[in-house]
Write a protein that binds this DNA or RNA. Structure first.
Lengths: 348, 348
DNA sequence: ATTAGCACTTGAATATGAGGAGTGCTAAAG
DNA sequence: CTTTAGCACTCCTCATATTCAAGTGCTAAT
């Protein structure tokens, strides 16, 4: 990689190649660039520039006599460039879009399940890429109420409602016969002491109590506290995925192998959650292009992700998975809009 | 379609063609059939038979000089034939398989979610086709307990636990301020009166009560009963789908269009539920081949379905979707085994 | 530094032909 | 009347050759 300080014209050529390839996934020739993007130099000049860009690692030639195709590096440059030139700032049109979207989502506010289904579906619909959403990790949300319901034998169903109205349930084993009455007072205890606290905080506090009880007091109470502890443990976060069919329509996935890759990765929720772990909560929009992705399964795709919040507390992430030659401008604006809209809906 | 009374030899040839095509999706020739399936006549004879079978609508020739391919009608004949010849009866091997499977599933009995996920996944794994399961319709299961939890304003979260330990929740609007205490006594009322009854029964009974109250008594009570009524209404049943990736590996889906069809149909839960509606609850195994399917979206696939029960009460259906040239023998045995295993697991 | 001109490369599309699998028909055999 | 052997015929597949156009890289002139 030589020096990478590109002059303005070179940048324009690079962007033109990227945009052309985004529009139509075919190797881009110099003459085409010149004419389509109105350059006032002849094709040979463009050719020289493109040759330089290839040396610098931005373009790639499938074979000697073909046009050129952008590399991951080119996409990265392109994305940075449009950010820098403010080509993705909020227009009034976007504001209106967010407005409408928010209205639509607010109607579903009381049912998180439908809300996120709708959000990922319409994000996918709008972009034709794959829409993802990570639901608020239960551990991070505040407890609204807990109930313990006696089931069979020593089995207890713990029902946890958080401040978003999301209900989670878990079957736990008490390891000793326990009456519904006892369970009720146990629930009362938790509700009185912990309502409004996040599950994470509660579990931490419970841990301390368990230690104390173990040292000084009743083994039974310790056992019960342990049960609470277990009831509040959720290993998996919920991920919504929409638009597999949409993504199949893209020419990029006319090759079945790529499709298999996608199917495999979205089948494995683990992987998806791992993906979200790599997305920082403070950035507004994060763009991960191909090889940049720490998770190797996603290295043939690009990902646009944006966190949504409730007031200032980050809750989850909404994201888009598409081919590396995705329409970044549109995608970034839309993901951003959806995140903003979710934030508004949830902050109310 | 001429007369369809086939002599035994003709049937054997037909089955041979079907089995050959199932094994390898290539047009089947007369000489191949003769040698591979040990017929003691020469290829010309087989040729004549195959020609007859084509006239009768069982076989189809892609072009003049090619071998022959089974039609839907041939698959139907084949399936009926193997049923009739008892080629899918329970061997001791299968009994053992069910035994093991049941053990595996019983460990997950307390968590329906994992149970059905595991069931569809391993069904798909074993067959390489798409595994489906329709979860017990909540309406048909018995109520274990209901809880009403005050959320915000006039919003109430209804948490319904059924006798399978499945927890469903729903946010409903009370349309008037209501305290948690009132909600508690309401829940008590429902629990005392309705525990063990199926949701359907409860709703019916509530309906009668509402009418009575409306005519003679308190409007408020009527309102509350209506709320219960609403809380117990679940529009959609849960469907589990596993193995999209597996199905992609089949040569039948190397054509991307077929794949799109599958993706589209499984994306639309509605359609899946509609599929299950066509499966009778008393048959042991139902095989639907291609065009036979009343739902047009499934007409390029075959479906093997079997209901599972709790004791004698039918709960849901487990099914397999695969290409028309699927290995019916294996598939039928396995679906049957899975249904039996689920029945045992749930009947305990 | 840019441009015009041109030879050269390469893949995609098209045509050509050999090879082979499989059929259908006919006439003879059982 | 059924079965079989023999053979001409059909049509697909695969490999090879040919053409075509797009696009490059280089050189020499501007």
């Amino acid at each position: 990689m030589k020096d990478t300080i590109l002059d303005e014209r070179t940048k324009r050529v690079l962007c033109a190649v990227v945009e052309s390839y985004i529009e139509k996934p075919e190797p881009v020739g110099s003459r085409y660039i010149m004419k389509k993007y109105g350059f006032d130099v002849c094709s040979a000049t463009i050719r020289n520039i493109m040759s330089d860009l290839e040396d610098a690692g931005f373009l790639f030639q499938p074979h000697t006599s073909a046009g050129r195709v952008p590399t991951d590096r080119a996409y990265r440059f392109y994305v940075d460039y449009i950010f820098q030139k403010n080509l993705i700032s909020q227009t009034s049109e976007i504001k209106k879009f967010i407005e409408n979207l928010t209205k639509k989502l607010k109607r579903l506010r009381n049912n998180m399940d439908s809300l996120f289904l709708e959000a990922t579906q319409s994000l996918s619909q709008a972009t034709k890429y794959l829409g993802l959403a990570l639901l608020p990790a239960t551990e991070k949300t505040a407890l609204h109420r807990v109930d313990f319901i006696k089931f069979k034998d020593d089995l207890v169903i713990a029902v946890i409602v958080n401040d978003k109205g999301i209900v989670k349930s878990k079957i736990i084993r008490a390891y000793h016969e326990i009456t519904q009455k006892e369970l009720n007072s146990l629930a009362d205890f938790v509700n009185k002491n912990y309502q409004g606290k996040t599950i994470d905080e509660i579990r931490e506090d419970l841990l301390i109590r368990i230690k104390q009880e173990k040292l000084f007091w009743d083994k039974l109470i310790s056992k019960i506290l342990k049960m609470c502890q277990e009831a509040l443990y959720f290993s998996k976060e919920d991920v919504y995925v929409s638009g597999l069919y949409n993504i199949m329509q893209l020419p990029d996935f006319s090759d079945i192998e790529k499709l298999k890759e996608v199917a495999k990765t979205i089948q494995d929720r683990h992987l998806l959650i791992k993906l979200f772990e790599n997305i920082s909560e403070d950035e507004e929009v994060k763009v991960i292009i191909g090889q940049e992705n720490p998770i190797k399964e996603f290295r043939s795709f690009s990902i646009i992700a944006s966190p949504y919040k409730e007031k200032d507390r980050s809750l989850g992430v909404i994201a888009l998975v598409g081919p590396k030659r995705m329409d970044y401008q549109k995608a970034i604006i839309l993901v951003n809009a959806f995140a903003k809209s979710l934030t508004r809906t949830l902050s109310d």
